[in-house]
């Protein structure tokens, strides 16, 4: 169980799970993805607004998962990276395609993909994965 089976959980995260929409603190100009309700620097003094990210970023580090948690066993081996978005914040995400040639600093962009499913007759979870920007 990975506790992703709740429909409300996915629904309330739909902006950030299906789009790269996070937040920004207007007071100190820090971007957050996933979005935060409270700025880490300014706390209650910070003015938070929604921010649509460009979605573009680069691989800061990556791994290839070969022993997966329950619910992901059928997808191994799959690559997961920490991606530094151009707006200056980091996010974890799966990288689609052949993981063999991945390198640090490669440019990536988000793609809409199936993430996991709750067994053969359960919910199918969709969300963002990332792919290399063409020409790399």
């Amino acid at each position: 169980m990975t506790h992703t089976s709740s429909v409300p959980l996915y629904w309330r995260l739909k902006k950030s799970k299906y789009n790269v929409i996070g937040t920004r603190c207007r007071t100190c100009n820090t971007a957050y993805f996933p979005g935060r309700q409270l700025c880490q620097n300014c706390r209650r003094k910070g003015e938070i607004e929604e921010l649509k990210f460009s979605g573009l970023g680069k691989i800061l580090s990556y791994t290839i998962i070969r022993t997966a948690p329950q619910g992901f066993e059928q997808y191994t081996p799959y690559a997961v990276a920490v991606i530094e978005l151009d707006e200056g914040t980091m996010i974890s995400g799966q990288i689609v395609g052949n993981p063999a040639g991945l390198k640090i600093d490669q440019r990536v962009k988000p793609v809409f993909r199936k993430i996991s499913e709750d067994g053969s007759d359960g919910l199918i979870h969709y969300g963002m994965k990332w792919e290399l920007v063409d020409g790399q």
């Binding site: 959980l9 791994t63 998962i65 997966a68 948690p69 997808y75 997961v80």
Partner: peptide, 25 residues
Amino acid sequence: DQEWESAIGLTFTGLYALMARRHMA
């Protein structure tokens, strides 16, 4: 982080592997 690490199939070995590769680089 349940919403952003577990939900995409990361494991603890995976998280430390991300640190290891970065440390090596």
